[in-house]
Design a protein around this nucleic acid. Structure first.
Lengths: 146, 146
DNA sequence: AACAATGTTTAGCCAAAGCTAAATAGTGCC
DNA sequence: GGCACTATTTAGCTTTGGCTAAACATTGTT
């Protein structure tokens, strides 16, 4: 009773989407931490909460998880730091975000909408899709300068 | 102590992404139900579980929620039906999915990757972005026929 | 019609993300 | 240096989505 479904029904896409979701929040946090450190020298739980639009308590809890996952380091009542792994994830996330956002704007989406959509989309683009977006950006800036 | 952050830090984007996320699963389910009904005349819990790559028990639980939210109708040991609201949501989701997938392929992303990415992306594209994608598709098919 | 096989649901568990309210720790002022 | 104020953490609750194993219906066979 193998009962194999047609190709379009395979669960890979859904699995992948669910899996992405686990990383999404981690990525959002480390990205934000990197930004905050640039902007103001340190990332404090409260600032994260404010920026994310989430309660302080939630941030504390999530940071605990991120520490368990070795993405950040943290001492009580102190600012948060990224580990190497955390920095890598942050850099990656910011790169993706930047590409997606720039791409959407190049496509003609209004900047504020592009920002919001990019936030949602960035966690779901494969390397392939990112490449395609970059190609488009290069191509189109070439055209523009004619 | 207003301490207002610069525009880029406003939590709107994150809020929106979190909100989207609440609808994602509902959308996936109703889309799948619509597909199954087309393909085989009825949508059965087990088929949903299989396609989604998730256990039967999970499907039962989620369907219960969808019923509470008036997206589906269902009697024990029977197939599932979409309410009008469910049908609308499904149609909308399928439309989005189709556009995003076609768009990615037009961009040069490989079909199987396009499918997977579209699955993740479809829940995060605004009407604006969808319009832009459609515009691109029209434009590019015009070019091709030269 | 009864029973075995199969399919579906229930029960009960876990983890993650969210919240509010209460407790605790730092900081700053006198 | 102590006390009040503010910031941070802890406690404890909720919802959602996931799981496995056990209970319960349905169906099909004889």
């Amino acid at each position: 009773m193998t009962h194999r479904s047609p190709a379009r029904g395979r669960p890979a896409a859904f699995r992948r989407t669910r899996a992405d979701h686990q990383t999404e929040i981690a990525e959002d946090y480390v990205e934000l931490i990197a930004e905050l450190m640039e902007e103001r020298g340190e990332a404090r739980g409260t600032d994260i909460a404010q920026r994310l639009g989430v309660s302080n308590a939630t941030v504390v809890k999530t940071l605990k998880r991120l520490q368990d996952e070795q993405l950040i380091r943290q001492e009580p009542y102190r600012a948060v730091f990224l580990t190497d792994a955390g920095q890598k994830l942050a850099a990656d996330g910011r790169r993706k975000h930047a590409i997606v956002e720039a791409f959407l704007m190049a496509l003609g989406v209004k900047p504020d909408v592009a920002r919001i959509d990019a936030e949602g989309i960035e966690h779901h683009v494969s390397a392939d899709t990112l490449d395609a977006m970059e190609r488009y950006l290069r191509h189109q800036s070439t055209n523009k300068s004619d």
